[in-house]
């Protein structure tokens, strides 16, 4: 450390007082940084604008919420454009990412935020139902694997609802006064982890868990669960996740991760179930979209011939992505006929 020694000699020649005096304030000792004062998000306060109205989170809002911006600015297709340019670190990235112009931004800047906001209304219900729908998808494929006497393969799918989703929906379950069911999910997982030897007991526990998920879904009014506009948004959420998971299952043209193949199988299966429930309404109100969606869904479903993955994928990831995009496009037509 020869250099350092010379360096410190020079520094002492300069004199410590000079050094202290010229030190930039931000170089002050760490003790002077107050953690409590700085731990609140800096971005809050900046976006807490004076408007009392509920703001739209441009990172998280569903299309029907973004439509308020689209309507205000009268820019066709704006909602999709906002979604496609995510994520946003600041609201004015709507301008820097060339989603809208500065003049347009000035008109809506009080309406938008990037902060977490309490979801309300339809957006909240779509969010709730999608999470439970993902749980249901996991449970569907878990059941198939249990019936095939593959408890080791069923186990991750019984684990996923607790590990990946429950914490994210817990607040809403409490709010909606749905009885806690994490305990039964974990109890079931324990049984399956241990080899699911007592099949009668596994059956009983499985029924309890599935009924809990279904009960939580039934908390939403029946009219909503039959409303195509609502259900199609949930289906899109499920298919989008199925798309990513299917992609994460395939390497070198082989299905190398059965877990992700099975996840996506479960999500598509539940999307099919949900669609059945709105079929009469779709036939009546949007016959063209209905025709396109049912044929694409039938084709899509072929990618998952059985719970145990086929040796070679039936469909490439690109083919699956394309079908899911087609379905989304057609659902947009019937959600948002314009």
């Amino acid at each position: 450390m020869f250099n350092l020694r010379v360096f410190s000699l020079l520094v002492s020649a300069v004199g410590l007082s000079t050094l202290m005096a010229c030190g930039e304030t931000q170089d002050s000792p760490s003790a002077s940084v107050s953690p409590s004062a700085s731990s609140t998000a800096m971005s809050s306060g900046m976006n807490h604008s004076a408007t009392g109205k509920k703001q739209i989170n441009i990172n998280g809002a569903i299309l029907s919420e973004l439509d308020k911006l689209e309507a205000k600015l009268a820019v066709p297709g704006l909602s999709n454009k906002i979604q496609a340019s995510r994520p946003y670190g600041k609201t004015d990235e709507l301008v820097s990412k060339k989603v809208i112009t500065q003049a347009q931004f000035d008109q809506v800047k009080d309406m938008v935020t990037i902060e977490d906001i309490q979801l309300t209304g339809e957006a909240k219900d779509v969010d709730y139902m999608t999470k439970l729908g993902l749980m249901k998808g996991h449970m569907l494929v878990a059941k198939e694997l249990l019936d095939l006497k593959k408890p080791d393969q069923a186990e991750p799918h019984i684990g996923h609802p607790v590990e990946e989703i429950y914490a994210d929906v817990e607040g809403q379950l409490n709010e909606r006064k749905v009885k806690e069911f994490k305990t039964s999910l974990i109890a079931l997982q324990d049984l399956v982890k241990a080899g699911a030897k007592d099949t009668a007991k596994v059956d009983t526990e499985f029924k309890i868990s599935v009924q809990s998920v279904e009960g939580a879904i039934a908390n939403l009014p029946d009219t909503q669960r039959k409303d195509p506009k609502f259900v199609l948004q949930v289906i899109n959420g499920l298919l989008d996740t199925a798309n990513s998971e299917y992609g994460a299952a395939i390497a070198d043209g082989k299905i190398s991760q059965a877990i992700e193949y099975q996840d996506s199988r479960g999500f598509v299966a539940y999307a099919n179930d949900l669609y059945k429930g709105i079929t009469p309404a779709m036939q009546k109100d949007s016959p063209d979209a209905h025709k396109a969606i049912t044929s694409a869904m039938a084709d899509l479903t072929k990618a998952w011939p059985a719970p145990i993955p086929p040796a070679a994928p039936v469909k490439t990831t690109d083919a699956v992505s394309k079908l899911i995009k087609d379905i989304e496009m057609n659902t947009q037509k019937s959600i948002n006929p314009s």
């Binding site: 995510r86 959420g237 996740t241």
Partner: peptide, 10 residues
Amino acid sequence: KPIRNGKIMI
């Protein structure tokens, strides 16, 4: 807290 597929967390 898990962040679901398609979601953003800052």
